[in-house]
Lab assay of single mutants.
Amino acid sequence: GKRLNIQLKKGTEGLGFSITSRDVTIGGSAPIYVKNILPRGAAIQDGRLKAGDRLIEVNGVDLVGKSQEEVVSLLRSTKMEGTVSLLVFRQED
């Protein structure tokens, strides 16, 4: 696979993607993946982020050990017109 650095500018329609966690172990944390890209928002305008990408970092914060809720609040904490920096891991087909 490969790592991608993606910067998304948060506009009025938001970042435009949803996340999910897979393989949750009890008391553990699961990897966070991009669930889908919404028809409006920064992600589809940028065009690089894809469903199935694994989020590794948000704005330089390592997501290991973070819950899905914590990751959502990290993403939401970005101000309007601010930039969210994502490091994602993509499995090659």
Rank of each mutant, 00 (worst) to 15 (best):
M80F: 11
E70P: 01
L38R: 12
P31K: 12
V61K: 07
A42V: 04
L4H: 07
G14T: 03
R76W: 09
D53H: 02
G82E: 14
V24D: 11
R54K: 09
Q7V: 13
L63C: 11
L86Q: 03
Q68T: 14
G14Q: 03
A51F: 03
I37L: 06
T83K: 10
S29F: 08
S85G: 06
T12A: 13
M80G: 13
K50R: 14
I56V: 15
L87M: 14
G47V: 02
R90T: 03
F89P: 02
D23K: 06
V88H: 01
S29G: 15
L38G: 08
I32Y: 11
I26A: 08
D62N: 13
G65P: 02
D23R: 06
A43Q: 03
Q7L: 12
K66P: 00
K79R: 12
F89N: 14
S77M: 08
V64I: 12
V84K: 00
R76I: 07
R76P: 03
L55V: 05
D93L: 13
N36F: 06
D46F: 02
L63T: 11
E13C: 05
E81Y: 08
D53A: 00
L38H: 15
A43H: 00
L49M: 05
G52T: 01
D46K: 00
V24I: 14
R76C: 08
T25Y: 09
N5L: 10
T25G: 04
D62W: 04
G28F: 10
G1R: 05
G14I: 01
E69K: 11
L49I: 04
L63Y: 00
V88P: 02
G14F: 02
F89Y: 13
A51S: 09
L75V: 06
I26V: 08
G11V: 08
E92R: 10
D46G: 04
N5T: 15
L4V: 10
G52D: 03
I44S: 14
F17I: 05
R48G: 06
Q45L: 08
D93I: 08
V84L: 10
L75S: 00
T12G: 08
K66A: 11
L8G: 01
D46H: 02
E70F: 14
D62L: 07
R76L: 08
A43G: 03
D62S: 12
E70I: 04
S21E: 12
E70D: 13
K9A: 08
K66I: 05
S73A: 14
S21C: 15
I26D: 11
Q68M: 07
G1F: 15
R48P: 01
R3I: 15
G52S: 02
E70T: 10
Q68K: 09
A51L: 05
K35L: 10
Q7K: 05
N36Q: 13
G28H: 13
Q45C: 15
Q7D: 15
S73K: 12
D62A: 08
L74D: 04
V72L: 12
P39M: 07
R48N: 09
G82C: 12
K79A: 11
S21P: 06
Q45I: 08
S67C: 09
N36M: 14
R3P: 05
F17R: 00
N59R: 02
E57H: 06
R3H: 11
T25M: 11
G60V: 00
E81L: 09
G41F: 00
L8D: 00
Q91C: 10
K79N: 15
V72K: 12
I19D: 01
G65W: 05
Q91V: 15
L55W: 03
G47T: 04
V61N: 05
L8I: 08
G47D: 03
M80S: 14
S21M: 10
F89V: 11
I37P: 02
N59G: 05
L8T: 03
T20C: 15
V61I: 12
E70A: 09
R76T: 14
S85D: 10
T12V: 12
E57G: 07
D62Y: 05
S18N: 10
E92H: 08
L55Q: 00
V84N: 03
Y33L: 11
F17E: 01
D46N: 03
T78P: 14
T78E: 11
N59M: 03
R76N: 15
S67L: 06
R54G: 04
Q91G: 13
K50P: 00
R90P: 03
K35P: 01
Y33F: 12
Q68H: 14
A42T: 04
D23L: 08
A51Y: 04
Q7N: 12
R76Y: 15
M80I: 14
A43Y: 00
T12R: 12
L86D: 00
L38S: 14
T83D: 05
I32C: 14
N36Y: 08
F89I: 11
K35H: 10
S67K: 13
T12L: 13
R54S: 06
A30N: 03
S67N: 08
T83F: 08
G28P: 15
A42E: 03
I44M: 12
S77L: 06
K79L: 06
L75P: 01
A30I: 06
T78K: 07
D46T: 02
T25S: 12
V64A: 14
G60H: 06
S77F: 12
R90W: 00
L49H: 01
T12E: 15
K50N: 06
S29Y: 09
V64C: 11
Q91L: 11
K50E: 11
R76G: 09
L74G: 03
K66M: 14
